[in-house]
Structure formats: C-alpha cells, structure tokens
Simulated assay, not measured.
Amino acid sequence: MKMLKTGKRINSHRKFSEEFKRKLVDDFEKGVMSVPQMQKLYGVCNALIYRWIYKYSTYNEKNIRIVEMKDSQTHRLKELEEKVKELERTVGQKQIMIDYLEK
C-alpha cells in the first residue's frame, strides 16, 4: 500500500496480461500451485484468481464450483493413506503367521 506524506492512501490499479492470467490457470490445473500459494507469491486477490480460472479453464463448465482442498486436509488424507498401508502390512503378516501355524 502506497501512501503520501500526508498519510492519504494512493489507490493503485494493476493490469494483468492475458498471458499471465492463462499461466496462473494452467499452473492451477496442472497442480503446480494452489490458489492460496499464487495469492501469496504474486500478491493477487484469490477472488480474482478464481475469476480467471472460471474464465480461462479448459476443464471448467458453466455453473460448476471449484473446490480446493486445504493443506491441512491434504496432510490428513496422506496420514490416513499411510495408516491404511501400515494396517494392510500388519494384516498380511498376520495372515502369513496363520497359514504357517495351520501347516
């Protein structure tokens, strides 16, 4: 935010090229960056990024809402997947022991 010496704010209006907008949408679609990451990196309001996604996305259909998982949900999903793998290994080991004991 820019300010004059008198303490008044100077409103600045930035224009973004269509190429820049399409690059952000492409990065979002490929999973390179999430909207919050783009917002922090480029200093662009997330509502504006979502507007570009709705406008330029190749996957977007009219009246479809884009839902993005938050980092904590993604982390929780990975934790649960690891737990499932661990339990599957344990069950497999137990099955081997049962087969061995039955013989």
Rank of each mutant, 00 (worst) to 15 (best):
T58M: 12
F28Q: 01
K70T: 12
T6F: 04
E102L: 11
S12N: 13
I49A: 01
I10Q: 12
P36I: 03
R76C: 06
W52V: 01
W52A: 00
Y59S: 14
D99G: 04
M33F: 12
C45L: 06
I64K: 15
K78H: 07
Q95K: 15
T6D: 13
L4T: 13
L77A: 11
K5F: 09
D26W: 11
V84N: 03
K15R: 14
A47C: 07
G31C: 05
Q37A: 08
I64T: 14
E88W: 03
Y42W: 02
E19M: 06
K70G: 07
E19P: 02
L4E: 08
K15T: 14
L101V: 12
S12C: 13
G43T: 01
E79D: 09
D71T: 10
D99R: 14
K2M: 13
M33L: 15
R9M: 14
S17P: 02
E79P: 00
D26C: 14
M38D: 01
R51G: 03
I53H: 00
D27A: 14
E86C: 04
N60G: 11
R22N: 04
N46S: 13
M1Y: 08
K2H: 09
R14E: 10
S57K: 03
E61F: 11
K78I: 07
V44T: 00
M38T: 00
H75M: 09
R14I: 08
S34K: 07
N11R: 15
R14G: 03
K21E: 10
S57N: 02
K21S: 09
L41G: 00
Q73S: 11
S72Q: 11
M1L: 11
M69H: 12
N63K: 14
Y50A: 01
V35L: 05
I98R: 10
V67Q: 11
H75E: 12
N11L: 15
K83Y: 02
E29Y: 02
V25T: 01
R51T: 06
Q73W: 04
K15F: 12
M33H: 09
K30C: 11
R76Y: 06
E102F: 03
P36R: 02
D71R: 12
Q93G: 09
Y42T: 00
S12D: 12
E86K: 09
L41V: 07
Q93W: 10
T58W: 06
K30D: 10
R76I: 04
D27R: 07
I64V: 15
R9N: 10
Y42I: 03
L80T: 04
I49H: 00
C45H: 10
V67K: 13
V91W: 05
R51P: 01
K78Q: 09
L80V: 04
K21P: 01
S17R: 05
K8C: 11
I98L: 09
Q95N: 13
L24K: 02
D27S: 13
Q95E: 14
K21M: 14
V25E: 01
D99I: 08
S12G: 05
